[in-house]
Computed example of a mutant assay.
Amino acid sequence: MVVGAGIAGTALAAAMAGSRHEVVVLEQAPDPSPVGAGVVLTPNAVRPLRRLGLGPALERVAVAVAARDVLRYDDDLLLGSTPQDGVHAQRHGAPNLALLRADLHAALLAAAGPGAVRGGHYVTDLLESSDGVSVRCADGRSVHGDVAIGADGANSLIRSLVNTDRYRPARRVLYRGLAPAERAPALLREPRVRVWSGSDRYIAAYPVAAGRRVAFTATVPAGARDPGSWTARGRVADLLSAFQGWSATARELFSAAEWVGMWGVHDHGPVPVWSRGRVALLGDAAHPTLPFFAQPANQAVEDAVALAAHLRGATSLEAGAALERYALRRRERTERLRKVNEEILAAVRAGGDHSPEAWTRMAAEAENAHGDWIYGHDPEDEGPGGADGARR
Results as ranks from 00 to 15, higher is better:
P169T: 10
G385E: 11
P169W: 00
Y375R: 10
L100Q: 09
Q90L: 09
L317N: 05
L77A: 14
S33D: 13
P83E: 14
A186Y: 03
L311P: 09
L126A: 06
G9Y: 08
G261Q: 06
T42M: 10
R118N: 02
R171K: 08
R172A: 10
V2E: 05
L161Y: 02
D131N: 13
G245C: 04
V162E: 01
L99C: 02
R278Y: 11
A364M: 07
V24N: 01
E182A: 14
A366I: 06
R183Q: 14
A250R: 04
G177P: 09
L54S: 07
D388P: 00
L79V: 08
L328I: 02
A184I: 11
H105R: 08
E332L: 13
L12P: 04
H144G: 05
E365R: 09
P114G: 14
A297F: 08
R333L: 12
Y326Q: 03
T231C: 03
N44I: 03
V46R: 02
A327G: 05
G38I: 01
L174W: 13
E27V: 06
Y326T: 03
A309M: 06
A170E: 03
D69R: 15
L26A: 14
E342D: 03
L41T: 10
T360F: 03
Q84L: 15
E302R: 09
S199M: 08
V162M: 02
G223V: 00
D284Y: 06
G313A: 10
T82W: 08
A5D: 07
A215E: 07
D139S: 05
S247G: 05
A319P: 13
A64K: 04
R392L: 11
A322T: 01
L281D: 07
L58Y: 06
G386P: 10
N163C: 11
L52I: 09
P185I: 12
R325K: 14
V147S: 07
A347C: 00
H354S: 12
E324P: 01
L26Y: 08
Q90K: 02
E342L: 14
A210Q: 04
N341P: 05
L188Y: 15
E252M: 03
H144T: 12
D165W: 02
